[in-house]
Deep mutational scan, measured.
Amino acid sequence: QVALSRTQVCGILREELFQGDAFHQSDTHIFIIMGASGDLAKKKIYPTIWWLFRDGLLPENTFIVGYARSRLTVADIRKQSEPFFKATPEEKLKLEDFFARNSYVAGQYDDAASYQRLNSHMNALHLGSQANRLFYLALPPTVYEAVTKNIHESCMSQIGWNRIIVEKPFGRDLQSSDRLSNHISSLFREDQIYRIDHYLGKEMVQNLMVLRFANRIFGPIWNRDNIACVILTFKEPFGTEGRGGYFDEFGIIRDVMQNHLLQMLCLVAMEKPASTNSDDVRDEKVKVLKCISEVQANNVVLGQYVGNPDGEGEATKGYLDDPTVPRGSTTATFAAVVLYVENERWDGVPFILRCGKALNERKAEVRLQFHDVAGDIFHQQCKRNELVIRVQPNEAVYTKMMTKKPGMFFNPEESELDLTYGNRYKNVKLPDAYERLILDVFCGSQMHFVRSDELREAWRIFTPLLHQIELEKPKPIPYIYGSRGPTEADELMKRVGFQYEGTYKWVNPHKL
């Protein structure tokens, strides 16, 4: 086992960053958080920038500027975001240094004079007029057009580079997404736009490419001749908990499936790229999406959770019991969808996408189930092999396979070949997804960000279904809070070829 401390991990990262040409360590950078008073800024962006600063992973002359409508001070920003920093008493001095680099400007999102004030403020910072500028839009999409237009007109660096990070949702359907994309691309070049999907920053999602293309053993079996089906799962054990009003506007397909799960599907299904260059990788992902037809209604199961009468606390409440959810809402909190990649490698292999709230566990994984062994000599005792990439929690890679049961006879039983990170790298604290992705933006690497043509294809696949749901308002199937979801989803999976045995229990190697 390799035991690495946080300091050692960050030392390795620093070495990698400083050796590259793309990370300008000594240049002045300004990180501007648009929507600095909001939840995302408070819980994710400010803490992430602090962790990067604490670990010495930001360029040395980096300033952080918050911008929002609320009249706040840096002290206010500190008060609301610091509880999420997880700072230790030993880091007190470092924390003071961090907040000394912070400033805040209040202004409207659609007022040109406010942006001119913001620009004057940035120019007044040390070497601010020639600094590289990175704008993070932690804002609702309704203000994107006004904000990007004003940034472009008043706040661009004339000497350094300018980059803009856009948070999902990128529209509600193909038409609104196209409108937003066309607007942003009329102001910024594609190499300046970073559409963030934080799932692409997760260690195991990034590991998929290495697993596939750096190991000879997987190449020959990664196709329709050997793989019976692919299941991509995202499960949350909690409901909307008072935030249903926002969720109800989008629903589970827009929230998770059309982005996170579809991105994971691309990494499983794509061909080997010409290189690890950002556009070479994204070219292959677009090719996969172009091979997927629009979702067919007979390959869809929609569910909505109801309270568990035997549960406790939140578990007793259904989705419609959330006071922020519109009365009688038919918005799905669970969806199972089957897609097919219609190309030579994957023809006929079902890709089953499942996601839901208020389920029995927290889990995100990719599961490849292989065909049955031909010419069975073990009297149907063999179960199908599976390769599982567990994204969260407890990152893991393992192969479910058959071995001989101890004893006199040739009785096979299920076991696993474990390729888990935790076994080799004991207690290594890896940077989280937002840390990686923000560092990628500083480096100018777009590999783990969504390109406009990729986004367009993703919406093309799901828009007809979303429009049909909005028009017909089908009643989702009720499922109990804390269950596996509607049984109809299991029946759909069985119908397209997935075999669920229920006889195997994964042993978490992190707890051995």
Rank of each mutant, 00 (worst) to 15 (best):
K357N: 12
K285D: 00
Y479W: 02
A315K: 08
E472L: 09
L419V: 15
Y305H: 04
G311W: 09
T333V: 01
S293K: 10
G318H: 05
Q446S: 08
R436W: 11
K429W: 09
V388P: 01
N299Y: 07
N360A: 09
E454C: 13
S275M: 07
L265S: 02
Q304E: 01
P412G: 13
K272L: 10
T333R: 01
I352Y: 06
V397Y: 09
E294N: 08
R451K: 03
M270H: 03
T487H: 12
L262I: 02
K429S: 13
Q499S: 12
Q468H: 07
I292R: 00
P474D: 14
S445F: 14
G318C: 10
V288Y: 01
P474L: 11
K285S: 09
N411V: 05
L353A: 03
S415E: 13
W506S: 05
L368I: 14
E312S: 08
Q381N: 13
L419Q: 04
T399S: 09
P273Q: 00
T276E: 04
V373S: 15
S483N: 04
V256H: 15
M257C: 08
G422Y: 08
D432A: 12
A458P: 02
P486M: 03
R390F: 03
L261H: 04
K404W: 14
R390Y: 06
P323C: 08
S415A: 06
A374W: 12
A274C: 06
L471N: 08
N360P: 03
I469T: 13
F442V: 15
P474N: 11
T403E: 07
H371Y: 10
E312L: 10
H467K: 15
F334D: 03
E435H: 09
D321T: 09
N508E: 14
A396Y: 13
E361C: 15
G307Y: 03
K494G: 08
D490L: 10
K494Y: 11
L359M: 09
E501W: 04
V295E: 01
R362D: 08
F449E: 00
E488Q: 05
E457I: 02
T403R: 15
A358R: 02
K404R: 14
N508R: 11
N394H: 14
W506H: 04
Q369R: 09
S278W: 05
D376Q: 13
G485H: 01
M270V: 03
H379F: 11
G482A: 06
Q381Y: 10
H260Q: 15
L339G: 03
P309D: 11
H510P: 12
C443Q: 03
D418S: 03
A458D: 08
E472K: 08
L368K: 02
K475C: 12
A335S: 09
T503S: 14
E454H: 13
N508M: 14
P478R: 10
Q296T: 08
V441S: 03
E470N: 10
L419E: 04
Q392G: 11
N423Y: 08
K400F: 10
R384F: 08
M447E: 12
I438L: 14
S445T: 15
A269L: 02
V366E: 03
L437H: 14
S275N: 04
K426P: 04
E314Q: 10
I352T: 01
V300S: 10
Y319Q: 00
G356A: 00
D490W: 13
R345G: 04
L353V: 08
G497E: 14
N343S: 11
L439E: 04
L339W: 01
G348E: 02
R282W: 03
R384Y: 08
G348R: 09
N259E: 11
R460G: 04
Q381L: 09
V337P: 01
E470M: 07
G497H: 13
P478T: 09
A336Y: 05
N308C: 09
L430G: 15
E386W: 01
E435P: 14
D321N: 13
G375C: 11
N508F: 14
V366A: 06
K285C: 14
L359C: 14
N394F: 14
G311D: 02
P464R: 07
V373Q: 14
Q392Y: 11
D283W: 06
L437R: 15
L417Y: 14
V507C: 09
G311E: 10
F378R: 02
V300Q: 03
V286S: 07
Q296Y: 04
K473S: 11
I469R: 04
E414D: 15
P273D: 02
C382I: 13
L466R: 01
A269N: 01
T324F: 12
R484V: 10
E314W: 08
R367N: 07
D440F: 02
Y500I: 14
L265G: 02
S293V: 05
E416Y: 12
R460N: 08
F409R: 12
F410N: 03
K511C: 06
W459D: 14
H467P: 02
E472I: 05
